[in-house]
Nucleic acid binder design. Structure first.
Lengths: 200, 200, 200, 200
DNA sequence: AATGAATGAGTCTTCATTCAT
DNA sequence: AATGAATGAAGACTCATTCAT
């Protein structure tokens, strides 16, 4: 009684879906098992979501919205371009670490069909990169980072970040991801900010 | 009729599979259409490959082997750490550009199931990163690149590279990917080599 | 159209399966034709039965349960060892005669795979023989039958009975099987009851 | 080299087929594995046998012919109705015991399709029963056995015999079948020979 | 809104059989 | 006679989705 009524049905379905999609992949998960785990009937899913595909999209949007909000807050909470970038990367890894299932969806399950890549995956990276771009742009304006194309830079920063998470997922999340934060930050900061490294 | 005898059957199947898997995704492709396009009977696929899954793995190995060979040759053909890194990244983008279908498989289709991520996708990035690591290590030894953990550096370099390709794929390959080579190289080289950037 | 709503789905599937398995054999029958004949969709079979194999097992259990109940009742309804044995054999032949399809499954289709022989076929003959053994044991105790190993005796009685049915099935059920009841009973009764053979 | 050329191809195919059909069942065996085990190409089977079905028929005929010859010889070698019957049953069990695979084919694999039951299985039991009938008839003529319908008697004798073998096969041939010979003979002989039952 | 039994189109895979060599 | 690569028809089973209740 207690566990069943925690959250409304839509939320329960999303949570169950996130868990299974992350663990077994989109095609490896059946809508029935999601319904079971969510404690609803098979048909109920279709009251809240038009199709299985729309369900994974919803799962992802939930995840993305939550991420974006946190990241924006985190970035605003500190000052200084370098500190902002550090915060962004560290927080990003922490968020991924706290929800490996969603991380997996983010990293691979959304790339199932060319259609999905073009719509959702694209939007996801766009949102992410907008934040990165913001930090980069501000850093350049402030003279903290070297001159560069913020868009291209964001693509590469995001790639490095993303691949670090993928490595961790491929390693079965067997080590603390957030421990890699400083390593990542160093690399990125040198890439974006490198200006005054003396001689050698 | 004309295309029927070009190449042996195994090769024809691999080519057809690469095309469809890349265009429509692993699950969006049926073994029958691969057989049709390859000009063989449905059952023939199973003479050469144990299952549909082993087929995509084979497609990928083919692609990876080809890539690795080219990249190694390319890197060896030039001298100087910076030149090697540039060559590596440029060649990588060129290879991806010349075979968008395989690029798509490489970037997403191999991540279909958690199983695949753990086995094949892992191996693929490992192979790629080994080359990158080699260049980074040599560069550090030679004093051309700054001191850093070559492994972690390779992860990030690979991530940036990969994401640049993914962007291109998500944009429907609508612009020449190789045109981005210098941008990527700059970013990476600053990240790995940044030592003597004068004042500001 | 008329037959559609007779009985629930599970029952309709079992009946259709019994018919086809009996007529065309297990491997000669497709799940689709069973579904068609039962007036259900192909997938519906798998709601009620885990696999085609579990379906034939279910068909058989149904048949066996029905048989056993009838035979036990029949045997209890009469008194005297000889009368019981006669009743058992007669009733057995009558039951087989009334459902030739199930008889065929019982006699041969359950022996399709070594696995089935070891599990289901074994259990079926065990159930049958337990009843026979009971009658034989009681007959011996009562002094009506000669001393013998009831287990081995049951094997042989069952064999004679079974082969009589098989003959009938092989002859396309072209004669009334129950007409053979007295002949069978005589043979068996002499075998089990013959006590005072003089001389030799 | 030595093993391969022992026997001609036809014989090798029959032997391999007997082994597999007996162990894994008719439908559980592929023609390819038979060809492999026989050391011939897949297509070669079809030079010697028209189809898979004709192959199992051939296997069976081989087995039956061999059996019949031995049984006839065995029966003729002794004198006296009772001795002949004993010899027949004992020899039958011994032959089955010496070739469990063929025994399994005989007992169940030939019953795969209604067609097979009607043609081959029928013929097999007919051959067997002819021998039994002969012994029974002679016994009756000689006054050794009681008056009865030899045909029906043979059906029942054959059934008892057959079921004893089936029990043994179902028990994984885990005990010496020939040890059951005397038990079987007693049962049968009482059934056929019992003449002077007093009274009742 | 919720259910869950039912649907049936869709797919991978097997394998007896053929035939060019 | 022999080969064995190739065929392609066939079939068990799955599962997203629907709809009567």
């Amino acid at each position: 009684m207690a566990r069943k009524r925690v959250g409304n049905k839509r939320e329960r379905i999303i949570n169950a879906a996130a868990k299974f999609f992350g663990e077994k992949g989109y095609h490896g998960t059946t809508t029935s098992e999601i319904a079971d785990a969510a404690g609803v009937a098979a048909g109920t899913i279709y009251i809240y979501f038009k199709s299985k595909e729309m369900l994974i999209v919803a799962v992802f949007e939930e995840f993305l919205g939550f991420h974006m909000e946190r990241l924006k807050q985190g970035v605003e909470a500190v000052s200084g371009s370098e500190a902002k970038m550090r915060r962004l990367l560290t927080l990003g890894l922490e968020l991924m670490e706290s929800n490996p299932s969603s991380a997996r969806i983010f990293l691979s399950q959304l790339r199932q069909s060319p259609e999905m890549i073009k719509t959702v995956a694209k939007r996801s990276s766009r949102a992410y990169k907008e934040i990165i771009e913001g930090v980069v742009e501000d850093g350049i304006s402030a003279g903290d980072f070297r001159e560069s194309d913020p868009v291209a830079t964001a693509v590469m920063v995001f790639g490095a970040y993303q691949n670090m998470v993928l490595e961790w997922v491929a390693a079965d999340c067997s080590y603390p991801l957030s421990a890699k934060a400083s390593e990542l930050s160093e690399f990125i900061l040198i890439g974006v900010a490198c200006k005054e490294t003396a001689e050698s």
